[in-house]
C-alpha cells in the first residue's frame, strides 16, 4: 500500500475552477481539503486491478434522437435572465480575443 501524501495546490485548483478564495480562508480550505483527500486516499487499500470502471448507474447504449429541428424558445425568453445585453441581441461580456475561444 503506497500511502504517499499528496499536497493540494489550492491556488492552482482555484484558478482552474475560477473561484476567488479569500486570503483569510485559504489555509482553512487547504487544511479541510487535505483532510478530505487524506480520507478518500483510503481507496488505495482496495485492489482494483482489472476492474472495469462504472460511469453510469444504469447500463444502456445508443440512446439518441432523430435529426429533427424545432425552435420553441424565443430570443426574448432566452435572454431575459441575462445580466448584460447589447441591442443587437448578444450577451455582453468583457473583451475576449479573436481566436482565443474553445473550439
Amino acid at each position: 500500500m503506497n500511502k504517499q501524501k499528496k499536497t493540494i495546490d489550492v491556488d492552482y485548483i482555484a484558478g482552474l475552477a475560477k473561484l476567488e478564495i479569500d486570503e483569510s480562508k485559504k489555509s482553512r480550505f487547504q487544511e479541510e481539503m487535505q483532510n478530505i483527500v487524506d480520507y478518500v486516499d483510503l481507496l488505495s487499500e482496495l485492489n482494483v486491478e482489472n476492474i472495469i470502471p462504472t460511469a453510469h448507474a444504469a447500463q444502456m447504449k445508443n440512446v439518441w434522437r432523430e435529426d429533427v429541428s424545432e425552435n420553441d424558445f424565443s430570443r426574448e425568453v432566452m435572454l431575459k435572465n441575462a445580466p448584460e445585453l447589447f441591442d443587437e441581441g448578444t450577451i455582453k461580456v468583457p473583451q475576449v480575443l479573436p481566436g482565443e475561444g474553445t473550439a
Binding site: A17, L19, F29, M33, V37, L43, P53, T54
Partner: peptide
C-alpha cells in the same frame, strides 16, 4: 468544486476518479 477539480486535474485522474469508478463497480 475544489475537491472535484482536484481529483480530475492533470496527474490525479487515475489515482482518484478512475479508482473511485472502479470501486463503484465493486
Amino acid at each position: 468544486i475544489l475537491l472535484g477539480t482536484f481529483v480530475l486535474s492533470s496527474g490525479y485522474y487515475d489515482a482518484y476518479y478512475l479508482r473511485a469508478q472502479k470501486v463503484r463497480t465493486l
